[in-house]
């Protein structure tokens, strides 16, 4: 019978945003959903990328404007089960990484189920926004229904400054 080693890889990171994501996340902090227009094919992306995934054009961080907070639900799934196992406690994490790092680098961890992964097409956007719905009756979710953004009280310039989308 083979033994099994139960262990983990735990590492703190700081990922560079670059000008386009950086501006988009700055917008979230101000409760704005910024749509970025591709200078080459004129499609509007929210969220954006550095490079247009359709035509390969470079986005211009200045070429953006706030979209509304509403859109259509394109698709979704309700996550019923905990797919990630138990969340490690902070005391354990501090032993695994430099203790001072944890405060600045909170653990990346999904919410407790049930929650929904939703794909929302914001009004005026050409792509879908992959995000969450949670804390409400998820059986109300239907493809094609209208969704609206709900903001966190405290925002830091992070994708989850937008707390969730809710059914209108």
């Amino acid at each position: 019978m083979s033994r099994v080693l139960d262990w983990d890889i735990t590492v703190p990171f700081r990922w560079t945003c670059g000008p386009v994501y950086g501006r988009f996340l700055g917008g979230l902090k101000e409760k704005q959903l910024l749509g970025f227009e591709c200078p080459r094919c004129q499609e509007v992306y929210c969220p954006p990328q550095d490079i247009c995934p359709r035509c390969g054009g470079d986005f211009d961080p200045e070429q953006c404007r706030p979209l509304g907070e509403e859109g259509d639900l394109v698709s979704f799934t309700v996550v019923e089960a905990n797919l990630f196992g138990p969340r490690p406690d902070d005391e354990y994490l501090r032993r695994r990484i430099h203790p001072a790092d944890l405060g600045e680098h909170p653990l990346l961890w999904p919410p407790d189920p049930p929650y929904a992964i939703v794909m929302v097409r914001l009004d005026g956007a050409a792509n879908n926004f992959l995000h969450l719905a949670r804390g409400e009756d998820l059986s109300r979710l239907q493809v094609g229904c209208r969704m609206r953004a709900v903001w966190k009280e405290e925002r830091e310039g992070f994708l989850l400054d937008l707390d969730r989308f809710t059914v209108l």
Binding site: T16, C17, G18, V20, Y21, D50, I51
Partner: peptide
Amino acid sequence: SRWDLSLPGLYR
């Protein structure tokens, strides 16, 4: 050490 470009931005 550069904080102006994302990973795809750097490759670009």
